[in-house]
Design a binder for these strands. Structure first.
Lengths: 216, 216
DNA sequence: GTCTATACTTGGATAGAC
DNA sequence: GTCTATCCAAGTATAGAC
């Protein structure tokens, strides 16, 4: 039996029926995680959404959990590309927050963060999943750290705030916001919060300028 | 059929076998949420932990979801009492953060936040659960807001930070930290983060003192 | 009123058909 | 190599025993 997700991807005949089925299943898995949650996602729910037989999940991916991890990888890569280019194009810290908020809202609407959060939630239940998901979050810590490093450096706050800690906090907050927002579908507290952060960031900039740091 | 969780609690004969069974089931539900996660929690898992027949869950609470909500209420009340008295006894903002961290670590170790977070996670799956859980989080927003109000007032930052937004952020962060910590069981990033917050809070105090606010 | 034996449903996984 | 028919385990819920 082929180890799913591993190198030997069974039928990797380019453009063949197998790869097409795989793609359909991955997309279906994503939409099931978003719409049915981790608990509501099953081989059957995925098969239905993909218009495929549920057993194909096991043939192509070995297990439901494996398919879900591939789904997480897929979403994660897409989103990372988006965030990366957006952050690169953001000049000032204020622009950075704007961009972060804009894409995060996009995430909330489309349910991309949901995929991650649902997988985290499911990790309590399915054994071994926690470590796999943790591995897939790591790049986001690194990404946030780099982005914040620049932000903090330009603000002259480097001696006060460690980018690593800030990155951890930001990621935790994103996750928490997604969970809270998802609970009742009310985005407004999150919107207000971001406005608040914007304001505070502006203040910090002014503060660092006062203390004679190389502010922008 | 008695509406579970509602006023008519079936056999509420004080100290009788029924109330004892109820208590056992509630405790078992809490420990199952903590150890098995929402997905791993079932009438059977609860019954086993309580050394009771799984069907008793339905007799006493009507459904698994209802029992879990009662479990959430139980933990939430216990914790609220703890936090309330701790916050009352905290004089300075710095003490407040110390206390918050201390109890949060206790939460992490004992799994109290886990109960809430698992219920939030499960809300994606079980219909109608989201609203119920949201209702049970509301007091925590209010609590955090009052605590932060005092904090912010004393620091003279009232004009810059809205306590309501800060409270939302703090709750979101707690939830996010619990999820991240739970994933791989590594508490150290959270510990470092709190140390960082402590440091930053100290700075804020100094800053507000400079600007001539009624700092403590 | 309290609890147990039992029916029914859903989901994961494989043996074997094409 | 690709997919389907089928089996088995686990979960919810109730009918009925005590």
């Amino acid at each position: 039996m082929a180890r799913p997700g591993s190198p030997s991807k069974i039928g990797t005949n380019e453009g063949g029926r197998s790869t097409q089925t795989r793609t359909q299943l991955i997309d279906a898995a994503i939409s099931s995680l978003i719409n049915d949650g981790f608990g509501g996602t099953s081989a059957r729910s995925i098969g239905e959404r993909a218009n495929q037989n549920q057993a194909l999940v096991f043939y192509h991916f070995g297990s439901v959990a494996n398919l879900l991890l591939v789904a997480l990888d897929t979403v994660s890569e897409r989103r990372m590309a988006k965030y990366s280019s957006a952050v690169e194009n953001a000049g000032t810290p204020s622009e950075l927050i704007d961009v972060a908020w804009q894409i995060f809202r996009e995430d909330l609407d489309a349910g991309y963060v949901t995929v991650l959060v649902e997988m985290m939630a499911g990790s309590s239940t399915t054994v071994g999943l926690g470590a796999e998901v943790a591995q897939r979050i790591a790049p986001w810590f690194a990404f946030a750290e780099v982005a914040l490093e620049r932000f903090i450096g330009e603000s002259g706050l480097g001696s006060l705030i460690a980018a690593k800690d800030a990155a951890y906090a930001v990621v935790a907050m994103y996750i928490g916001l997604e969970m809270l927002t998802h609970l009742d579908g009310d985005r407004s507290p999150a919107i207000e919060l971001f406005a608040q952060v914007q304001k505070f960031a502006g203040l910090m900039g002014a503060f660092s300028a006062t203390t004679g740091a190389k502010g922008k």
